[in-house]
């Protein structure tokens, strides 16, 4: 991007990418003071730090989702729907069909959960299609700090994707215990697939399988989007030739963005459906 090249002419290519992969971090340092930080300082903050840019975009996009859908839901007519309601109903029916086909239990939570995941993740992934330098440049211009770190795709932060997948993991545990009882849940982990006599082996297989669910769920989304963003950053280094390459990669990403949102939603439904089923 031309404007970014002007602002960052002193950076090497490595520094350019490094800078674009840094979060706007607000956290507690070793002395217990809360402040914005970047670079090693941010890394040293440990657990008590927030990626303000990621949370901002994530919550902002989530608000767009719920306010948009709420405004439609509030005025939803059973007569002929208008354009926006038509779109919302299309999304609703898409999610509802998938939930009904996959989840056979009876839960008022699963369908709205799936809808939230699909639309929210889709919106967050879509930020990947915004040219990589536009919003950081805007942040630099507004804040007046040319060094400010500002990332815009929440799903390229493992904290965001794991935050969601761990929440889903807790739901899996909750539903497993609620439907099967603590004993039933334990039996499922301990007595399969080799029978009660080989309980340690069963646990050795089943517990990592269970724990792998949130990790794979979160890291899949993160990995796909992070890789996508990284390629966009590399393309941005091409200079004058970046436009066709950028276009091609964006066209490809047009497939990845909804696909990853769909996969995240489907796996959530499948995991929760497994949690609610007796074996």
């Amino acid at each position: 991007m031309a404007e970014a090249a002007g602002a960052e002419h002193t950076q090497t290519q490595g520094e350019y990418i490094q800078h674009h992969l840094e979060f706007l971090t607000f956290g507690k340092d070793a002395e217990g003071h809360w402040h914005f930080a970047h670079g090693d300082e941010a890394a040293e903050m440990g657990f008590w730090a927030f990626h303000v840019d990621m949370l901002g975009w994530s919550i902002g996009l989530g608000l767009i989702f719920i306010l948009l859908f709420r405004s439609v839901a509030k005025n939803a007519t059973s007569g002929v729907p208008g354009g926006l309601q038509n779109f919302v109903e299309w999304v609703y029916e898409f999610v509802e069909t998938n939930v009904r086909d996959t989840f056979h239990g009876n839960s008022a939570l699963i369908a709205p959960l799936a809808l939230t995941i699909f639309v929210w993740v889709l919106l967050m992934n879509t930020m990947d299609l915004v040219p990589v330098d536009w919003l950081p440049w805007l942040a630099q211009t507004i804040s007046g700090d040319p060094e400010i770190a500002f990332r815009v795709v929440p799903t390229t932060d493992p904290n965001v994707t794991l935050g969601m997948s761990i929440s889903i993991f807790l739901l899996i545990i909750f539903y497993s215990i609620k439907i099967k009882g603590p004993g039933g849940f334990f039996k499922e982990l301990a007595f399969q697939p080799f029978g009660p006599k080989l309980m340690p082996f069963n646990l050795l297989i089943e517990v990592p399988t269970l724990l792998a669910k949130p990790v794979s769920l979160g890291l899949r989304l993160y990995g796909n989007l992070y890789a996508g963003e990284l390629v966009f950053l590399l393309i941005a280094l091409f200079g004058a030739f970046q436009l066709p390459a950028h276009f091609l990669w964006a066209a490809f990403h047009l497939l990845v963005v909804p696909l990853q949102a769909f996969i995240f939603m489907m796996l959530t439904i499948v995991y929760l459906s497994q949690a609610c089923e007796h074996h």
Partner: peptide, 15 residues
């Protein structure tokens, strides 16, 4: 991994 995860989880639960 940091507290962003918690923030995201809370936002997720709310939404």
């Amino acid at each position: 991994i940091n507290a962003t995860l918690l923030g995201q989880s809370i936002a997720f639960a709310f939404f």
